[in-house]
Design a binder for these strands. Structure first.
Lengths: 192, 192
DNA sequence: TAAGGCATGTAAGACGTTACATGATTAC
DNA sequence: GTAATCATGTAACGTCTTACATGCCTTA
């Protein structure tokens, strides 16, 4: 992938996200960071150990976080906290303009699928669409719930993020329903 | 990344996309395939030679495409076409249900940024938002143009794909404008 | 015939994924 | 005291990215 992701910065999106979590949560162990991603709804990153542990060490090497050994029980932990330098890097990353050129078009796997949906026989295509629509509607409900659970009062920006998920998902539902309608209209009614 | 991407299939999304292009366009050279991605608006894949050339060879090894040498001028080309087996694989990939579990939530880098936007001083946060909004609005115009340029009559599914880009981008614009409004309201007016 | 881009690749590197390994803690 | 799970890692692997290399082919 090479570090270029977005803008001029030198940090991966995952690195920045980890940095951000450490910044928000205060001192935390790599494990706690992992939980953050494991529990997160967005499936972008798996939060796998193989990703996180090397990553925080990388961040420490670069001086963006600092770890202090701490003992809970008889077990050795490392609590990571963000350094001043790390804060600067985080700000630089957040500030970095999105999408160098023009097209800030995000990736939607359903869109890719749609391009080749004509490879399927009509019946299967319709059934794919209706399955996907079901999944999307479930996602929409989740997004609504998440949005309610993060009120504006608490962390405004977390609410905004949840709202993004909501609006985007709603748009995708609308889109796919529209597609379904057109296909049904054009291929003849079918109830299943 | 390991091949798991989406569903139960065994093919990467990029592999499937390449397969799909070969299927749609008929016999084509790796170079032509690259152009497809280079010209594409979606920045998901760079269409780099280092990705495509090894990939088509991989597909051929797996029997999904077959290449026949062809000569134009004095230069050797290879025209790739999809095999029956390849067609089956493409269909299997298209048909594969999206998102195993529940959350079919797509990734939006702006959403990630939003989570940590509070790291910036208010003025910078606002200016980030307004820059991003500008970029998004440009993307929206592009999406509208793309949508007009791919009429329903020609390739229905290409039109649907363009329409997806349009609706999703529109939702993102709406979202970010909403965020901007709230921030301005809550932080006091500011014209710049 | 020299310049520039077309078309085909290869090389090195980064990142994240699954899968495995291992010791500490807790539950029963 | 044994089993499950917590918490910390490491190993191997695959994929894509940038950067480079190299001949063809057109055009001026």
């Amino acid at each position: 992938m090479a570090r270029q992701e977005s803008g001029t910065t030198d940090t991966t999106e995952l690195e920045a996200a980890v940095l951000g979590v450490v910044w928000q949560e205060g001192p935390c162990t790599p494990y706690a960071i992992r939980q953050h991603f494991l529990e997160s709804r967005a499936p972008r990153w798996s939060g796998s150990a193989g990703a996180i542990y090397p990553l925080v060490r990388r961040l420490e090497t670069r001086g963006l976080v600092r770890s202090t050994p701490s003992v809970r029980g008889r077990r050795a932990h490392r609590d990571f906290r963000i350094t001043r330098h790390g804060g600067t890097a985080l700000k630089r990353w957040v500030r970095a303009p999105i999408s160098l050129g023009d097209g800030a078009l995000i990736h939607d796997p359903l869109r890719t699928r749609m391009l080749f949906l004509s490879a399927l026989p009509r019946e299967e295509a319709l059934s794919f669409v209706s399955d996907a629509l079901g999944a999307l509607r479930r996602a929409l409900q989740q997004a609504q719930k998440d949005c309610r659970e993060k009120p504006v009062g608490e962390d405004q920006f977390a609410h905004f993020a949840a709202r993004n998920a909501l609006l985007v998902t709603r748009a995708r539902v609308k889109w796919l329903a529209e597609v379904q309608g057109r296909l049904k209209a054009c291929w003849g009614e079918r109830l299943s």
